[in-house]
Design a protein around this nucleic acid. Sequence first.
DNA 1: GCCAACGTTGGC
DNA 2: GCCAACGTTGGC
Length: 135
Amino acid sequence: MKSEPDVFSFDDLKKKGTAGWDGVRNYQARNFMREMRVGDKVLFYHSNAAPAGIAGLAEVARTAYPDPTADAPGWIQVDVRFVERLPRFLSLDELRGVPALAQMRLFRQSRLSVQPVDAAHWKAILALAKAKRIP
DNA sequence: GCCAACGTTGGC
DNA sequence: GCCAACGTTGGC
């Protein structure tokens, strides 16, 4: 799930504990949120940031319910709970260079703010976060 | 701040 | 249903 850190950062989620993921106004992203279940793990991605990348882990705390910030019905949000910071920040630039992640939606649908992560990609990302960056 | 990519809107 | 215009997103 992507958020602009200037608006709502991973640190903000850490402070708040749990937050409503409001403001999604894209049908595809909305449909993915609808499928989320409590306990589903989430990669918290900082978009429109320098650098952009994955900051940490969160999880779904509440399934889809109406987004009160929407001016039309039909838009929904889920609640997301802080889980943990990754051992290190994974920049988009670094992610791009990992062959195991080449097929990630993130690169092909760069504007989609909520997207599923394949189990294999998930594993590779967590392993990467624990590993030292290869210079 | 710029610009490319892409989603949405609206005229036909 | 097509497509041009337009608005937004997101990387840099």
